[in-house]
C-alpha cells in the first residue's frame, strides 16, 4: 500500500492534471571540499505540498538557501516554470527558522512588505493585506509592532506575509521548531487552510516526522551529509489526518526508520 518513486508521483499528478511547477536538476553544493548537496533531482507540481525531512545537519537549510539563491549552487539548477529561478523575477517566499518580522514595522506594514518590493499596486496590496489579516485572525493587531506580540502571533504574521505574496514557491524552514505542541498543531492546520484557500506550492522542511506526515502530500527523505534523495513517498491519507490512526503511524515509523538507518 505504500507507493514510492518519483515516476508514481508523476503519474498521480498527471491524473490530477497538475503541471510541473518547479524542477530541480542535479543540484549540487560544495563549500570548499565539503560536499553538502549531492546531485538532487526532483519535480514539484503546481499546488503541491512537499515536506523535506532528513537527519539533523544533513544540509536541509543549505538546500533551501540554494532554492532561494541566497547561495549559488555549485552546479545544477532550479527551474521555475522552465526558467532558472531568480528572486527578482519569480515570486519566491521564505519563512525562516528564526522569527523574521521587521521590528520597526507594524503588523500590516510587515504583511505589505514583500508586495511593496514587488511593486504591486496599492489597492491590491491593501486588499491582500486585509484578506490575510482576516484569514489569520490578526485584525486586532494590525497596528501593533512585533515586539508587542507573543512569539506565536509573530510567527503567524511571518507566515501571513509569505502567503500574501501568492508565491510561485513557498519555502518554509522549520517554521514551528520553537513552538510548543499546542501552538504547532494550531499553526499546522492554519498552513493547510491557507494552502488550500490560496493554492500555493509549498516546500516545508522539518525534522519532525509527525509534522511531515501530517502536512505533506509527498515527503522527500534526504540522506545524511552529503545529502542526496533517499526516497520519495506519496502520502494519500485523507484530511484532516488523524495522528493516532494506524496508517498514519505506519508512515511515521517507516520514515523514521529510513532516517535512522543510513
Amino acid at each position: 500500500m505504500m507507493r514510492h518513486a518519483e515516476t508514481e508521483a508523476a503519474v498521480a499528478d498527471e491524473k490530477n492534471g497538475r503541471p510541473v511547477k518547479i524542477s530541480v536538476r542535479n543540484l549540487t553544493k560544495r563549500f570548499g571540499d565539503l560536499l553538502v548537496l549531492d546531485d538532487l533531482t526532483f519535480n514539484i507540481h503546481a499546488n503541491e505540498f512537499v515536506c523535506v525531512v532528513g537527519p539533523t545537519g544533513c544540509g536541509k537549510t543549505t538546500f533551501l538557501n540554494c532554492l532561494t539563491r541566497i547561495y549559488e549552487p555549485t552546479s545544477g539548477d532550479l527551474l521555475i516554470d522552465n526558467a532558472s529561478a531568480d528572486p527578482q523575477k519569480h515570486n519566491i517566499s521564505f519563512v525562516f527558522q528564526e522569527p523574521s518580522a521587521f521590528p520597526w514595522l507594524t503588523v500590516e506594514e510587515n504583511l505589505a512588505y514583500g508586495l511593496k518590493i514587488k511593486r504591486v499596486a496599492k489597492g491590491e496590496i491593501e486588499r491582500r493585506v486585509n484578506q490575510i489579516l482576516d484569514l489569520m485572525g490578526l485584525q486586532q493587531f494590525r497596528k501593533s509592532y512585533p515586539g508587542e506580540l507573543s512569539v506565536s502571533i509573530e510567527q503567524r504574521v511571518i507566515i501571513g506575509r509569505s502567503f500574501a505574496m501568492r508565491p510561485d514557491l513557498l519555502l518554509m524552514d522549520e517554521p514551528y521548531g520553537q513552538m510548543d505542541v499546542k501552538v504547532r498543531f494550531y499553526l499546522e492546520d492554519e498552513v493547510i487552510r491557507l494552502w488550500k484557500e490560496l493554492g500555493s506550492t509549498i516546500v516545508f522542511i522539518t525534522h519532525n516526522i509527525e509534522e511531515a506526515v501530517y502536512l505533506a502530500e509527498r515527503v522527500i527523505i534526504l540522506s545524511n551529509k552529503p545529502a542526496c534523495i533517499k526516497e520519495e513517498l506519496v502520502l494519500d491519507l485523507p484530511r484532516p489526518r488523524n495522528i493516532a490512526g494506524s496508517e498514519f503511524i505506519q508512515y511515521r515509523k517507516y520514515i523514521t526508520d529510513k532516517i535512522k538507518w543510513w
Binding site: T68, D86, P87, F96, S100, G114
Partner: peptide, 21 residues
C-alpha cells in the same frame, strides 16, 4: 540581522533597497 536581509533578498529586493528598507 542577516535573516531580515535574507527575507528581503528572497522577496527580490535589490541591495540598495535592502539598505534603505
Amino acid at each position: 540581522n542577516q535573516t531580515l536581509i535574507n527575507v528581503s533578498k528572497t522577496f527580490g529586493a535589490k541591495n540598495f533597497e535592502i539598505f534603505h528598507k
